[in-house]
Write a protein that binds this DNA or RNA. Structure first.
Length: 418
DNA sequence: TCTGGGGTCCTAGGACCC
DNA sequence: TCTGGGGTCCTAGGACCC
């Protein structure tokens, strides 16, 4: 049964900030930005000015991840600011994964800085699991230079909550026998899947701690919060039994690409160019993953931050950049009412593998011309880099011909599903 | 110089069919 | 000329995660 499993959750402490700190030290800096009030944040000039990560001293000023940089600076004028370097983050993340693989092959990468390890049935190899967790934590610190917090339990939910209890550089267990003492006193918002919108709803029911939630009447909760109520009630009681999924078992559900443009987009032609540049990357990723899509959606946000979205089910499957772009143009034109835009996104979903359709839809005679072009462009970009070839409409447009990364995130980011 | 980007899952309402 | 219900598909929007 699930109570016999042994699961670790490994969480990098202030990942983006720690990784940047290590990199700076390796490049000769004598200052450790982890020890001063500092943040990783985008550039407000490009309208990317939000806090992506903060140091522990910055946290003392109540600076929060996701808040605008300007408001963080109001709280702490001497705040030290560094720019994100996503290449570095991916390299650090990979280095940690490779280190962890030495301990068990059963690893689920949950995000760039979090993963679950399954040690079930390995008691002979690792008789003392707390010693094992400490060894892993210390090895990451010694060899890679950054600290992690590790949670130890019998399922993923409890392990994840546990890793959050003590930070940084700590190991915490949270087995079912410890729930009452270690988990129930915590704020209900500390529970996985209890976010911004749910907290006030629970507070109205007089639920303030995880213990309050665990002991609440399940039927009333379900009436108020539908299926979500049952999910979080189970979590509050430590009930969760999803497997540690190794990456091979995970299939992608959709691909999205969106961007905030440094200036407002105010005419249709320019918007279409942005959409095309987003579709270039989506198309490449789709083809690279050997999938077709049959649902295209677009979304945008106006300069005064109002969001819109529209989607369309295609009654065919495609992996063509131009096809996706043309569907996206249509959706955009139907929805847009000339408001100035700061942000535009394109998403594709309802994917299916191209293994079968490749033969039936694209036999040699009926081979789509777009498909040949896409394949050729993909291979040129693969050999000579993504800037080696692009559509001439982007020349002197002030827009990037390709938006978003293609292959850097070759691990799935399954944020809200354990 | 105010407010990112990439995911998954669920719900509700309308159209349409039997 | 009273006003049934199921089912599926599609779309919009909102919740959560990192």
């Amino acid at each position: 049964m699930s109570s016999n499993r042994l699961i670790f959750h490994v969480d990098v402490n202030s990942a983006y900030l720690s990784w940047t700190a290590v990199d700076r030290i390796q490049h000769g800096s004598t200052m450790d930005i982890r020890e001063i009030p500092s943040v990783v944040a985008g550039d407000p000039k490009n309208r990317h000015g939000i806090i992506l990560a903060k140091s522990i001293p910055a946290k003392k000023y109540k600076i929060q991840t996701g808040e605008p940089l300007y408001s963080a600076l109001e709280k702490c004028p001497q705040l030290f600011i560094v720019s994100p370097c996503y290449d570095l983050f991916v390299r650090c993340s990979n280095a940690m994964m490779n280190l962890l693989k030495e301990y068990t092959p059963r690893i689920q990468r949950f995000s760039v800085d979090e993963c679950f390890l399954d040690f079930t049935g390995m008691e002979n190899l690792y008789p003392d699991y707390m010693a094992l967790a400490n060894e892993i934590k210390d090895k990451i610190k010694t060899e890679l230079g950054f600290t992690v917090s590790i949670g130890v339990s019998c399922n993923k939910l409890l392990a994840k909550v546990a890793s959050d209890i003590k930070k940084p550089d700590a190991v915490t267990s949270l087995f079912p026998s410890e729930i009452k003492e270690k988990m129930w006193p915590l704020d209900v918002g500390d529970l996985f899947m209890v976010g911004r919108a749910t907290i006030p709803k629970l507070n109205k029911l007089n639920i303030f701690t995880i213990g309050d939630l665990a002991n609440y009447n399940l039927d009333i909760l379900k009436a108020q919060l539908k299926s979500h109520g049952a999910v979080i009630w189970n979590y509050a009681n430590g009930i969760e039994n999803s497997p540690v999924r190794t990456s091979n078992h995970i299939s992608m559900k959709g691909i999205g690409n969106s961007t905030t443009i440094p200036f407002n987009v105010e005419n249709k032609e320019e918007a279409h160019k942005v959409i095309l540049s987003l579709c270039e990357t989506i198309g490449m990723r789709l083809r690279d993953s050997k999938n077709f899509c049959s649902l295209v959606s677009i979304s945008f946000r106006t300069s005064n931050f109002y969001g819109y979205g529209r989607q369309k089910k295609l009654h065919y499957y495609t992996d063509s950049t131009m096809k996706i772009a043309e569907e996206a143009y249509k959706l955009f034109d139907e929805l847009w009412q000339n408001e100035p835009l700061r942000h535009i996104g394109v998403q594709v979903s309802e994917l299916c593998t191209n293994e079968f359709y490749q033969i039936t839809l694209f036999d040699e005679k009926g081979m789509d011309k777009n498909r040949t072009i896409d394949k050729t462009i993909d291979s040129i970009r693969l050999r000579f880099g993504s800037k080696s070839i692009y559509r001439c409409i982007f020349l002197q447009s002030g827009l990037k011909p390709l938006t978003g990364g293609t292959n850097e995130n070759d691990f799935p980011m399954m944020g809200s599903t354990l």
